[in-house]
Design a protein around this nucleic acid. Structure first.
Length: 643
RNA sequence: GCCGGAGUAGCUCAGCUGGUAGAGCACCUGUCUUGUAAACAGGGGGUCAGGGGUUCGAGUCCCCUCUCCGGCUCCA
């Protein structure tokens, strides 16, 4: 028989040859490196027999999916080690994930695992690795597998098999399942696996966490152990260093170090913005206003606290009440707004509107409150009080196209400034929805037309739209390669209906407007959290709380420093003066640690010539410059407002 | 909210199996008057998250509450 290799060469092999045989036939080095094979594009074990004419690809450590395979192997080794240590443990699933793998266990009552146990577990794992246990596959009948796992009192495995059978398509019923065994440990597993545990050279257990069985909050909480694995110790080390780098950029840490914001137990989930952070915050709010103004938005201010009647009208009382702060006063239920849309819809209804007035575009950078469960709070990225840069557009059907186009343009213009890569996702009609199919066709069509009209590449996320309409989401990738959902544009036929919104048409009849919800930053809180990590705390000049700091050589130069500071402030530069009685070396060091862009050293020389000694963050000494020259340079740089 | 972990000076942390709280940085004072990443000396500062319990004695052991951290569910 023969197989075809990726470069289309034909490889003759004896009947019944395996992937390992094929690798050996190609070369000894490849045979040693081989982990698995891809037969006609499907991953298989190295020891699986090949069929005549198969397209064959040998999976080695340099193959794209090889790390997943290795990590899956490692997850099995973890389970084997845990069973060694806790024979009573119940096992569930253990897949590879983005940067490693996990395995979920149910430990016997009273047993808890913490990272203090990792040494013991890792030592056990190393025994399995050292033994170079081979991964052996067997295909058994469903009945045999069920019996086996029932006997071993592994209810999660039993449930998995039962569901496999239940969920199989009628024309392709599941009759057998595959089991993989390494050493004493057998697991239900689709495979494939590498040849043996010896390939697991560099692994590390990382953390332990609770995880609901099957991600369902009503079911058992299992103990999840996270780990990672690489083909070489160097790769593992590099990865751990990268994790360390991300930790150093943690916005919660930088927020405190740079005196941007703090949190306090007296207001969980709500930031206290310090003066430096407030500067950044206000600059972003101002940017949002500047984006809105020329695009026909008007700013409005609506109440924070509303009678429950409003929330019943909007549907929030049914669908969103658990996320709202509610208080009972004078026999009425009042709730803080978690979103602006109902207030804006109500505001629209307070006035009469003619078709000539539309579109009406309301923006409101005001605080929102959402009751987020305590366990979900996370620095600025998940808070209970925040401000969205959202706006609501009320328009006629025939205006949707232009308005959506305008929103797309605005979101891109806003986010691009920060040096993010932007991915666009279109979410279409969900199972649970309101409105006719025809309405959805129109709404989705309008979004698609806008995206394609502007030649924006997008991914479709079928069924993930809001119940009232389809949406376009904007995801950005930060400097650490992490993805965040920020902006959104949503079409809404529902809210205007519920609020009975109307406009008078050219035909003198009343018509229902369409509502568009849109935001570019999402929330300022989350956006600043992301920005801090994206820039590692080194904001671009236009956003930096302190743009320049005056460093007098000695006390007698302080008056001159203050004089220059006053001049620069007049020019709109944010500047401070280090008046401490400290050495210049010390002042420079502290300014560098504060990540201040420009350090202006002033001593006798500068005072005599009316200049400043310019030093730039990370760049070092740039020589001397006149005060006017520096002011001009900084002003230009600030005006560009670029990342 | 759920599971696990943690909470000691403003920050980072030490404090062995219970025996009366410590370091570095920061802060304050004094001396030095500094030329491109840390001058020197002295000093103040803690109901050991809060409450209850065990004990002759609790930062240390037990229980409850709060907050934070890592996840899960959820989410801008």
């Amino acid at each position: 028989m023969h197989v075809l290799l990726p470069d289309d060469t034909r490889l003759e092999l004896p009947e019944g040859a395996t992937g390992a045989d094929a690798a050996a036939a190609i070369g000894a080095g490849l045979a040693r490196a081989a982990l698995a094979v891809k037969v006609d594009g499907v991953e298989r074990d190295l020891v699986a027999p090949l069929h005549d004419g198969a397209r064959l690809e040998i999976v080695t450590p340099s193959s794209p999916d090889a790390l997943d395979l290795l990590r899956h192997d490692t997850a099995h080794v973890l389970a084997a080690a845990v069973i060694d240590l806790y024979p009573e443990v119940r096992i569930s699933i253990g897949p590879p994930i983005e940067n490693g793998f996990y395995y979920d266990f149910e430990f016997p009552p009273g047993v808890t695992i913490s990272d203090a146990d990792f040494d013991r577990i890792e030592a056990k794992m190393r025994e399995h690795v050292k033994a170079d246990e081979h991964f052996r596959r067997e295909d058994v009948t469903v009945a045999a597998a069920l019996e086996r796992f029932r006997e071993q009192e592994q209810p999660y495995k039993v449930e998995l098999i039962e569901d496999l059978v239940k969920n199989a398509p009628a024309d392709d019923p599941v009759e057998t399942v595959s089991l993989y065994t390494n050493g004493p440990f057998t697991d239900l597993c689709r495979g494939p696996h590498g040849p043996g545990t010896k390939r697991i050279r560099a692994f590390k257990l990382q953390s332990v966490a609770g995880a609901y069985w099957r991600g369902d909050a009503t079911r058992t909480m299992l103990t999840r152990i996270y780990g990672t694995a690489f083909f070489s110790r160097d790769d593992l080390k590099a990865y751990l260093e990268q994790v360390e780098e991300a930790r150093a950029r943690d916005h919660r840490r930088l927020g405190r170090e740079l005196e941007l914001f703090q949190f306090s137990p007296v207001a969980p989930g709500s930031a206290f913005w310090l003066p430096n952070g407030t500067i950044v915050y206000n600059l972003l709010v101002e940017l949002a206003r500047e984006m809105n103004r020329p695009r026909g938005y008007t700013e409005v201010r609506t109440p924070m606290l509303y009678d429950s009647e409003l929330w019943r009208t909007s549907g929030h009382w049914d669908k969103y009440r658990e996320n709202m702060f509610i208080s009972h006063v004078e026999d009425r239920d009042m709730a803080l707004k978690p979103m602006n849309c109902p207030g804006h819809a109500h505001l629209y209804s307070l006035q009469r509107h003619s078709y000539r007035d539309l579109p009406v575009r309301y923006a409101e950078p005001g605080p929102l409150h959402r009751y987020e469960p305590s366990g979900t709070l996370h620095g600025l990225l998940r808070v209970r009080q925040f401000v969205q840069d959202d706006a609501h557009i009320f328009c006629r059907e025939d205006q949707i196209q232009d308005e959506v186009n305008g929103c797309l343009e605005l979101v891109f213009a806003t986010l691009r400034r920060f040096g993010f890569e932007i991915d666009v996702e279109l979410s279409t009609r969900p199972e649970q929805r309101i409105g006719s199919g025809e309405l959805w066709d129109r709404a989705e069509g309008a979004l698609i037309e806008a995206l394609e009209g502007q030649e924006i590449a997008y991914r479709v996320n079928p069924g993930d739209g809001a119940f009232y309409g389809p949406k376009i989401d904007f995801h950005v990738t930060d400097s650490l390669g992490r993805s965040w959902q920020l902006g959104t544009v949503q079409l809404d036929y529902n809210m205007p209906e519920r609020f009975g919104l109307v406009y008078t048409g050219a035909d003198n009849a009343e018509h229902t407007p369409v509502m568009i919800h849109r935001a570019a930053f999402g929330s300022f809180e989350r956006f600043i959290g992301i920005l801090i990590e994206h820039y590692a705390g080194e904001f671009p000049l236009w956003l930096a709380p302190v743009q320049a700091t005056l460093l007098p050589i000695s006390d007698r130069h302080v008056p001159y420093a203050n004089e220059i500071a006053a001049t620069l402030r007049d020019e709109g530069v944010r500047v401070d003066v280090d008046e401490r009685t400290e050495s210049i070396g010390r002042k420079i060091r502290d300014a560098e640690l504060r990540k201040v862009h420009y350090m202006l050293v002033v001593g006798d020389r500068e005072q005599e010539t009316g200049s400043v000694g310019l030093r730039q963050h990370r760049e070092g000494d740039l020589g001397s410059l006149t005060v006017g020259g520096f002011a001009e340079r900084v002003r230009d740089e600030i005006e560009q407002r670029s990342a």
